[in-house]
Design a protein around this nucleic acid. Structure first.
Lengths: 339, 339
DNA sequence: TTGTAGGCGTTATCAA
DNA sequence: TTGATAACGCCTACAA
């Protein structure tokens, strides 16, 4: 007793019109008389018509799908960005399809393959920290699929990017630690060779060099810094150090918070023994005791801007594709760095 | 200079075969000679062939899409469940499409509409707390689209469900608070009239009644309890109470953690003044000081089981559709409830 | 074992 | 302003 889906043919038959007229009426083509259009819409409603996205995509050679590559969904910044994206895209009739990389390049590659298989019309990418250069995105640029990087972007690219000034943010954060009297400020990072991590490092370094005593840099490099768990590993490491730092600048709040928890468990006092600044101003920043100072910027806003840009590129294939949008970020000072 | 996508016709021409043979070879139909099959696969590879999902879906009347309805992605339990789902589904060639409800029924409805528009082949639903009875899912059952509830399930349903025993879990949690010496144990909930919240309430109630002194129930009802922020509101509320409780049983760890932070800021000692137990054993449970006792169960496992069940139903349309899978949960005791 | 042919539902082109 | 028709790429009866 399977009921078949209603098609434009069924509506056409019912209204004694041609299917092409129905098709036009349904998309409010002004070539169709207003009266006819209304009739069609009513009948469609009444018969419970739903346009078939596959037929439409097959015919139009467009999927109305935007692919999104991000490190991890559990990040509050990321899910805010996706909210912003979705809010913008859904009103334009686009759906999103998400690929998580967990900061790993191999997952990034397989996620991109999945998106390619699904024939996304556009691509929004926040790179994994492991990604040195985004050659694995060449298939998309070759097929002229609009591509925009956001937040975690490559050093050199022909695509548009939407970012905050990571170097500047890191500079402010580090300077703040210096002013708090820290003498040995470590930067906890996944690496400083490329991408936004390199930017953060540059800002950190600049602040150190500008300081009175030209403080020396001190890097704590770990593969994964995206989770609370990873922060505990960092804490374990620090607790074992001979001369631990008295200031820490993290590239991620979850990790910073996990580290604070670990350091406290190890008997240290935050911020007295070690002052801490994080990045992204996640909700955990105000959970941990002491509350975490952090670099704050709006994921939602980045998402909105990214969505607007990608839609622009999709609808205007001839548009210049290189632009750089820099959004503001600021330091929120809380107890973890006041002393 | 737009390069066209290669189709099975292109391969057919190249190999001097019929398109139908290519189609069959590509899906390893044993009716095609092995040698031919190999040839086809090689050529497909070489020409960079990618099957067109729209043509396939149009023809097969299947989207290879599974819809997923969940309260919020930022929940670690939820994202674990989705990991489990994705791991299972992707090997079978299915993609997922996610709708977030933020615990609100109107968003649940619009998310479902979106999934219907996208013609999902199956539906996995964790209800919002606001959902009393899932009539808005009727369109799916009417179209015989396989539907499985997981975690947050309706009281009565003809569909399969995958859950933990929420009542039992709540019972254990409450009993633990009683044994810790709490005399006034409040249950923080979004409501007790229906769904898993009703189950939790039942377990809570049972433990109270079984106690020596037949403790009285004490409900703190709030609309939203899904975030750290919401927990701070709960704390504000408790701090203003005349006779605040000395034990709290939450239905969500984020909320519990936020509340602990708020209560501490208000000068209370946890667990001395108030002992706390949460639900879901999220990473924040070990961030907050004192660490949060919580009911622990595997989202990943629930996701895996849900995926298997839905695939079974999709591939065997004649299968009985009602089954109930109950997965284990346990109480993890940490400092927030030890005194 | 392989080929032929028709159709899935929509839209664009062309003609009326 | 509307209608007829072909095409998008794939799959599957049926025929060979």
């Amino acid at each position: 007793m399977e009921e078949k889906d209603v098609t434009i043919y069924d509506i056409a038959r019912e209204l004694d019109l041609a299917s092409s007229t129905i098709s036009r009426a349904l998309k409010n083509d002004p070539k169709v008389k207003l009266k006819t259009r209304n009739k069609v819409h009513q009948m469609a409603q009444k018969m419970g018509y739903q346009s078939n996205p596959f037929a439409r995509s097959l015919r139009n050679k467009r999927s109305y799908l935007i692919g999104i590559i991000i490190p991890r969904l559990t990040n509050h910044f990321v899910s805010s960005a996706i909210s912003g994206l979705e809010d913008m895209l859904s009103i334009k009739g686009y759906n999103i399809i998400i690929g998580q990389t967990y900061g790993q390049i191999d997952k990034e590659i397989s996620a991109l393959k999945m998106l390619m298989d699904n024939r996304v019309d556009g691509l929004l990418v926040s790179l994994s920290d492991q990604t040195k250069s985004p050659e694995h995105l060449d298939p998309f640029t070759k097929k002229k699929i609009p591509l925009i990087y956001f937040d975690s972007v490559p050093d050199i690219t022909d695509s548009s990017v939407i970012v905050i000034d990571h170097a500047q943010a890191a500079y402010i954060a580090t300077k703040h630690l210096i002013e708090a009297g820290c003498k040995k400020i470590a930067h906890v990072t996944t690496g400083i060779s490329h991408g936004i991590c390199a930017d953060k490092y540059a800002g950190y370094k600049k602040a150190l060099l500008e300081s009175n005593k030209r403080l020396k840099e001190e890097l704590l490099v770990f593969e994964d810094l995206g989770s609370i768990e990873s922060g505990k590993h960092v804490a374990d490491h620090i607790l074992k150090m001979n001369k631990p730092p008295d200031g820490l600048f993290f590239e991620n709040d979850h990790c910073a918070a996990g580290c604070i928890a670990g350091l406290k468990k190890g008997g240290l006092n935050i911020p007295k023994d070690i002052a801490v600044v994080g990045f992204n101003d996640e909700p955990v920043a105000t959970l941990i005791d002491p509350n975490l100072s952090s670099i704050s910027y709006s994921g939602y806003e980045i998402g909105r801007v990214a969505a607007q840009n990608i839609l622009l590129q999709i609808e205007n294939p001839e548009m210049p594709k290189i632009s750089k949008t820099v959004l503001p970020a600021r330091l929120v000072i809380r107890e973890s760095s006041i002393r």
